[in-house]
Structures are given as C-alpha cells and as structure tokens.
Design a protein around this nucleic acid. Structure first.
Lengths: 337, 337
DNA sequence: AATTGGCACTGTGGACCACGGAGTGCCAGG
DNA sequence: CCTGGCACTCCGTGGTCCACAGTGCCAATT
C-alpha cells in the first residue's frame, strides 16, 4: 500500500508543514526535498496518502496538511528522536546543578524544559507511592495540637497538623515517634498501612487515643489522599501558536490537576517516551494538542513523569529529544542528592 | 473644572464601556443613564473630559473610551467597593473551610479568587520575614547529611539538606537541636540572625564545625534567600479578553516570580486595597492590565498579599469587593488554624 | 451662561466584486 | 509507472461603495 516514496512524501509534508505552518503543495515539495520525481508524481502519491487518511486538504486547491494519523505514522516510523546539541546539553547541566532542595530541582526542571522546547512543560513531583519513609517527626505545637512531618527518600516533605488530641505528654510523643520510625523507616509508603496496623496495641493505653489519631492522619494524608504534586511552566508559549481549539479551553484544561495527571499517566509503555497526538488525548480541549511524556527516576526505579504539551503541529523529534534528555538529567541529579 | 455632571458622565462612560467593551457615544449614554440632559450637552462635557485626558476616542466619529487617568479618577472618587452578595460570601466560606494544611488553604484561596473575579488571581504565602519560629528539627539522613526542617507559626515548613558534615554524632545533633530551639522558638525570623550569633561558641569544640554549617544554612535559606512563594490561578480567564498588548507578553510577565512579587509588593498604603491601573504598572507587558491587591493577615499582623490581574477595562468595584472579602476570610481561617 | 436641536462631516466596517495565484485532478504520451 | 500539459477551483487580496454611528459646531432657546 505505502511504498518507500509515499512514506518519504509524508515525511516531507510533515516536516515542511511544521516549519511553515502552511499547507504544502506538490511543487514546493519537489523543490525542497530530493525525492527525485516530478510534482505530478508527488500529486499521485498525495492522493493515495489522502485516501488512506494520512493527510488532508483544508479546501480544494490548497496544499496538504498532515492528519493526526499522519503524525502518528511519522512519529512511529518516519522519524527518530533527535539528540540534543552539545550546547543544549551543557545548558541543561548548568541549569540543574546547584539546586539546593527538591522544590528547586523541580522548578528549575520545568522551566528548563519549557525553554528548550518552546512549549508548555509539566513536571510531576516524585510520586509518594514510590518513595520510602526516611523519617517521621512529631512536633508538639502547644495545646492539643501536634505537627507530623514525614520525610521521604526522594526529598519530599509532607506535613500535617493534628488537632484535638487532649493533653499531650512529651514522653508519650517521644515514644510514639521512635515507635513510628522503627516501624516505617525505609518502607515504601505503600507498605506503611500494613506495618503500622498493630502499633496502637503496643502503646500504653493511656495514650492510645493519640496514637490512633496520629496514625489515621498519617495513613489518610500519605496513602489515601496522596495528591500528586505537579508544576507547569511556559504557558506563554501557547500564545505564540494559533490553535484550532480556543486558547481558553487549553489553558483551562491545563489548570486542572486531574487532567495533567491523566495526561502524564496514560503512558502505554512506562519508562519510554510516550506521544499522544491530537484526538488521542482524552480531553476535549486538548484535541488540537500533542503530549510528549517520559518517566524519570533513579536507576531502574521510576519516580514520576515529565512532559510537554504543544500543538499537534510540533517538532516531534526535537521535543522528544529534549524530554528524554531532561528526564535523564533529573534522574541523575536526584540520585546525587 | 469638573462639575458634578461631568463626573457623572465619566462614571457612566466607564460603566458602559466595562459592560459592552465598545466605545460609548453620547446618544447611548443619554438613553441608558438618567443624566437629565440631551446628547448634545453630553458631547460638550465629553469634549471637556477629553481635554483633561480622562477619556479618548479611538478615532474620529467613534465613541469615547476611558483612559488610565479616567479609570484612576473613577476608582478614587466615583465608585465604592461593592460588597459581595450573601451567596458569594457563603461560597467563600464553604470553599475555604475544611482545608487541612497551609498548602491547601493557599491553593483553594487562589482558585476561589480567580473564580469570583473571572480574572487571574495571585496569592502569596505568608511571608517568612513576618513569621516566627515554632520549631526547628534536625534529622540525620545517614552519612554526612542532615535535614533541617523549620516550622513557622503560620504553618509554613521549610526544609533543607545540609551535606558534607563528616561524622554525625546522634548526641551532638540532639544538643544542637535543643540549643537551636531554645534560642529561636517564638522569635521572628528577622531576629534569628541576632539570637543565634553566639551559639557556636557554646558548642563543644569537637562539633563546632557542624553547628556552624547548620547555622549558615539556616540563615542563608530563611533570611537571606527567603524566596517568597507565590501561586497563580485563572490564567484561562485572560484568553477571554482581547488585549491591546499581546497575550504572550502578559503570560510571560506572570510567569516571572519577581514580577509577581513586585506587582503585589508595591502597595502605597499597606493594609488597604491597592489598585494599579495600566501604565501605573512598572512592567512593559502589563501596560494594558490593572492589578487589585490587598494584605491579609491575622489580627493587626499583616502576613502577605493577595491580588488579581485583569484588563484595565475591569469591574473595579466588584473586583475590589472580592479581593477584600477573600483577604479577610483567609485571615480568619489562618487565625483559626 | 448653559442647554438644545439641527446639520454637515468623517472614519469604520461590511458587502460586493474582480482578479491573480497556488494547487489540484486528469489525461495522453513517453 | 512517470511526466508534462491543461483546465478548473477556490482562496486571499485589494478596490470601491455605502450605511452607520458618532462627532463638532452653530444658531436658537431658556
């Protein structure tokens, strides 16, 4: 059905359209690409490509534009991830080193990615479910209140105030703290519910209420309610493109945390670059955008995802290269921390 | 110079233009507002208002549009802050109660404000410089690393990893921790440098290096480098308006933390509503926007600011009412925490 | 002195039209 | 199977025209 030359034509159409943002015609293609055939021949190929749904014309007597299906084929078979230039790699390195804590790493990463791709960048904090407990701290706040601080191995620090505890005895807090740490230190958060289940039984009955309250907050905040934290950057880049969908719909979608999570989450093949093109996205407002995402992590351990949102008409090889490179560097930085 | 009626005309021009987004003519004014005079008279007044720079016409034979100066007069003398409806107040209350920690309070607040005003909302975290230390925690992370966690009375939790400490002795950490807490508990962060100055001298010489390292990180992260934390919401609302300046410039400005801080910070009169209109903003890209901001805090103690960014053509009374109301509620919620 | 109706004037924006150009589909010949 | 030629189609541009909304000015009125 699709011989080599037709694929070459499709590739050329995608590349030219991405560059110029204008429907590309057979003559222009013949001039700018060494296809070795005449415009008429290219026209015939284009008819075939259009019949198969890879390209389309906005109207008669206009050039062709790739469809979502066309981009999909381009990404899957006609292009390869473009490695970053040495200068770009140096930029990444100098940009990410020197961050003093997790917040700063994440903030810098998302800005960097936005800058490299000229698109909207999304970075997810290391997922709590894949982190393990480094330390649990309990701090009496005076009165019936206690602050619980959980520090994970990935640098995330989650805190929560626990109220209504009645009288708080210093020594009971000390006991509970060391008990908690003995039970949870080094455990994955997913395992915490299991290992703390029988703790209250070990507590002096007098302070058992406090222990139960603390544990329930711990479980609720870290396991059940574990909200993924996500940051965005580069929304200004959206304004530069003119979208089929209204810009407002896109911005609205990007403000919904749930949408972002699903956007990154729906990777077919974890630990690989994932590309979702146009209507492949579940969200109405994002029908005219594509999402390139990747996992990052330390060693084989995947921690969370990063990604980029841009127009379907984007430079896929370059964007994929940037996302992959940034994901790797973040992993390295986190490992070094 | 400006008699009562001319002011009434200006007010009417502002109100109509805000409603319709179209230059308003003398005839329409006479119809829609009970000015009690004929269009011709209004025209004469308009000429006077234009000579004084309060309104302008986009071109001959078009209606008039308020200038920045016109909006300024409107805000200062021709309008009053519009109280929220009962329904809106209930919405605020139900929206803000039930937040479990500071992050959640801030996140909900910024969304709420964006929703109420249909504009871009900005909320600053309680400023560190105006908070006091509740507790300092030191957690050995294994090896030469230590995590410092500072908890403030406003609920902010700042953490930092300190590396390269050599051997860490449990008991030395315990000593340092209690020493730190004795010295700093209850102090404003601004005072911390003063009260910890002579601490190293009190430390066992063997562990003095560690104490010095910890203190320098403490000072650096909390006092010198104290970055203000700021969150945004409602950027999608920008897309609904058509701006003189390019949307891109505005979005870019709003992504710069420094810009946001100055935007909120430049209040003439603290603890009051501040309005900066159009070119009154220092930033190039924000020449066609106005900023309404207010302090929030507990009691008389101002903690930080919230604000709203929208087109100069905005509903000032309504926006000011919403900002003021939300600022008050946030203060109450924080006080109750 | 202030207000008003009348009137001539003026840009804007929409409708209409004509035209050049880019690109196509098809066909017949190599 | 490829190619050059050709007729066709539609878009975008630029020009003209007109209606409209709104103005500024003036003379008359209160």
């Amino acid at each position: 059905m699709l011989d080599e030359r037709k694929l070459a034509v499709l590739r050329a159409v995608v590349e030219d359209f991405v560059n110029t943002n204008e429907p590309v015609g057979s003559k222009a293609l013949a001039e700018r690409h060494p296809l070795g055939v005449s415009p008429a021949t290219i026209r015939n190929d284009m008819v075939a490509l259009e019949e198969d749904g890879y390209i389309t014309q906005p109207h008669t007597s206009a050039g062709r534009v790739p469809t979502d299906k066309g981009y999909r084929l381009f990404v899957d078979r006609l292009s390869s991830v473009k490695p970053l230039s040495a200068a770009e790699r140096r930029a990444i390195e100098s940009f990410l080193t020197g961050a003093v804590d997790l917040d700063e790493i994440v903030t810098r990463t998302v800005r960097l990615l936005a800058q490299l791709t000229h698109q909207v960048a999304i970075v997810q904090y290391p997922s709590l479910t894949r982190s393990s407990v480094q330390h649990v701290e309990l701090v009496p706040l005076g009165g019936p209140r206690l602050m619980m601080v959980v520090i994970t191995d990935t640098g995330r620090v989650e805190q929560r105030v626990i109220d209504g505890l009645g009288d708080i005895s210093e020594s009971a807090v000390d006991d509970l703290r060391s008990m908690l740490n003995r039970a949870t230190a080094g455990r994955f958060l997913n395992d915490v519910p299991r290992v703390v289940g029988d703790l209250p039984a070990q507590v002096d009955p007098e302070h058992r209420d406090m222990a139960v309250a603390v544990l329930s907050v711990l479980l609720e905040s870290l396991v059940e309610r574990h909200e993924e934290k996500i940051v965005l950057a580069g929304t200004a880049n959206l304004a530069a493109v003119d979208f089929a969908a209204s810009l407002r719909d896109i911005l609205e979608a990007l403000e919904e945390n749930m949408v972002l999570i699903r956007l990154l989450g729906e990777a077919k093949d974890p630990s690989m670059l994932t590309v979702r093109i146009g209507a492949e996205n579940f969200h109405e407002g994002l029908r005219s955008t594509s999402v390139v995402s990747a996992d990052y992590g330390v060693g084989n351990q995947s921690l969370a995802k990063i990604g980029v949102v841009g127009p379907t008409r984007m430079d896929y090889p370059g964007t994929m290269g940037a996302v992959r490179a940034v994901a790797r560097y973040v992993g390295q930085i986190l490992a070094g921390q």
